[in-house]
């Protein structure tokens, strides 16, 4: 039945005996169509072609239902995460403690602590968090000295930007002092968005 177009990988559309494009008919079976001139209102060719498509859709519906009912196979998350945890992205190495100490923390670990501190604020979520030593050399030994933090946040509408920036700065500074022992010179807060409080878990469809 299919028209054979020889070598062409993608044969083009097919026309029903009534002149209707099958591709168009199937693409939007419920939508309004512009049938060819003189096309009958109740066209048996169109009806038959639509019935074929509907039968296929019926199989799809059943197939989806049977998949939904089947025991869900779980992905082995630990297999993936074991590999991931071997391929850490630590980022920069940052100085901990006094200038003469040989103590360090990797950027990813410090960022994790800062994000957690910011996430603990009501209706605030941290995104990107980058940390870098301020300037080089100077009075500090190589690589040591205070750091600058740049952190992106999204927050609920109950916040104003200035209050939010101050609260985030406080949270980061407190975490840096109390939880790490990292000298933070400045915290740049980038407010990405103020949003309506997410009902539910904030999961977004694709």
């Amino acid at each position: 039945m299919a028209v054979n177009h020889g070598a062409g990988e993608e044969p083009e559309d097919e026309l029903l005996p009534c002149g209707q494009s099958l591709m168009e008919l199937w693409e939007d079976p419920a939508g309004p169509r512009v049938p060819p001139a003189g096309h009958p209102e109740e066209c048996p060719h169109c009806a038959a072609a639509l019935a074929e498509l509907h039968a296929l859709e019926e199989f799809v519906t059943r197939s989806r239902a049977s998949e939904a009912a089947a025991p869900r196979r779980e992905l082995s998350v630990s297999t993936v995460m074991d590999i991931v945890r071997m391929e850490l992205r630590p980022g920069r190495t940052l100085p901990l403690g006094e200038p003469d100490e040989d103590a360090w923390i990797v950027e990813a670990a410090a960022a994790k602590v800062f994000r957690a501190a910011v996430d603990a604020l009501p209706e605030v979520t941290a995104g990107s968090c980058r940390i870098a030593p301020v300037g080089a050399g100077g009075r500090h030994p190589a690589g040591r000295g205070p750091v600058r933090v740049r952190i992106e946040v999204v927050a609920g509408m109950t916040w104003t930007v200035p209050r939010l920036a101050e609260a985030v700065r406080d949270a980061v500074a407190r975490a840096a002092g109390e939880r790490l022992g990292l000298e933070v010179l400045a915290v740049d807060v980038v407010v990405m968005d103020l949003v309506e409080p997410a009902g539910g878990n904030g999961r977004t469809p694709w």
Binding site: M81, V84, R85, L88, R89, P90, G91, E107, A108, A111, K112, R115, D119, T125, A126, G127, S128, C129, R130, E152, V154, A198, N201, G202, R203, T204
Partner: peptide, 18 residues
């Protein structure tokens, strides 16, 4: 972290947050 949306999680993951 469960409640956070994908975009933020993806940025965090990109920066090494497993």
């Amino acid at each position: 972290l469960d409640r956070h949306d994908d975009a933020l999680l993806a940025v965090r993951a990109g920066e090494g947050d497993e």
